[in-house]
Amino acid sequence: MTAEPLLAPDEVTRIREGVAAAVLGAPEGLADALEHDPAGYLRLVDATRVGAEETGRLLREAVQGARAAGHSWDTVGRVLGVSRQAAQQRFAEKALAPAPSGPADGTGSGGAERRVLTPLSAFNEMAALAEAGRDGWHLVGYGPLFHEVEASGHPWEHCRVTLASGGRHRRLEAEGWTPVGTGWFPWRYYKRPLRPAGDA
């Protein structure tokens, strides 16, 4: 079975070149070392391993995001160039249940009450977080189809930006937004407490 092409050939080329550039460019001096140092090739193997692990993680999260957006296993399988069953066997097991992040009694590490908001998708998660934030809940964890929130004594606001928005991440943090976790591809989530009306 061949993958259903959704990207133009030049887009595919740019992605491939970008991954190769990241693998060669992130480790300090790796590209230059390949000209004269045999150990550089072992660093290249290690950098490529890290790149493969990361692209594998991104693929899992992208598939889970597509499922959360309402796409069937058949459609996902066509895009991947595999059968529905193969796609489901490879990716379904990690897509269903949120992992507990606190004790079984529904409290977080500081004793605050926690809740899991589910089922969520890329299309309704921000509205759910806005409602929870108005009620004094703030984001502490997330995964496919869910967000975990913790109670506090004041309202919060939440936002998300794509992981590729490097400059925007810095601006948000300068404006008092706190990143939550390391991101869930393709998003990174932020929160900040809302100031009471009248505070400057």
Rank of each mutant, 00 (worst) to 15 (best):
S121G: 15
A31M: 06
E93L: 05
R90A: 05
A95T: 01
E28V: 07
V116A: 10
A112L: 09
R90V: 02
A92W: 06
E113L: 08
S72H: 05
Q64A: 14
P103G: 13
Y41N: 04
S101N: 04
S121E: 13
G70S: 04
P38A: 12
L44Q: 05
R115K: 11
A99P: 10
A86R: 15
G108M: 12
G111I: 15
F123A: 12
D32C: 01
E53C: 04
Q85H: 02
V76M: 06
D37V: 14
H71F: 11
D105W: 02
L129A: 02
V79P: 04
R114P: 08
T118C: 00
A99Y: 04
G108V: 13
R49N: 02
A39L: 12
A97F: 05
R60K: 14
V82M: 04
G110L: 13
T118Y: 03
V50I: 00
E54D: 01
L44F: 09
E125T: 06
G106V: 08
D46L: 12
L58D: 01
V50A: 00
H71S: 10
P119R: 11
E54N: 01
R90C: 00
V63A: 14
P98W: 07
D46S: 13
D32G: 01
G106T: 11
G70N: 04
R90Y: 01
L59D: 00
Y41A: 09
E131N: 10
L96F: 08
W73P: 05
G70M: 02
T75Y: 14
L58N: 02
E28W: 09
P38V: 14
E54W: 01
G111K: 15
A47L: 08
V45W: 15
G108W: 15
V82C: 05
G111V: 14
D105C: 03
P119E: 09
V76W: 03
Q89H: 09
P103R: 11
Q88K: 12
L129V: 04
G111P: 11
L59K: 03
L30V: 09
W73E: 06
A92Q: 12
P38G: 08
G40A: 10
W73L: 08
G65P: 03
F91W: 04
R67P: 01
G51M: 06
A87R: 05
W73H: 05
S83A: 14
L117A: 04
E28F: 06
R43A: 14
G70Q: 02
G106S: 13
A47M: 09
A130D: 15
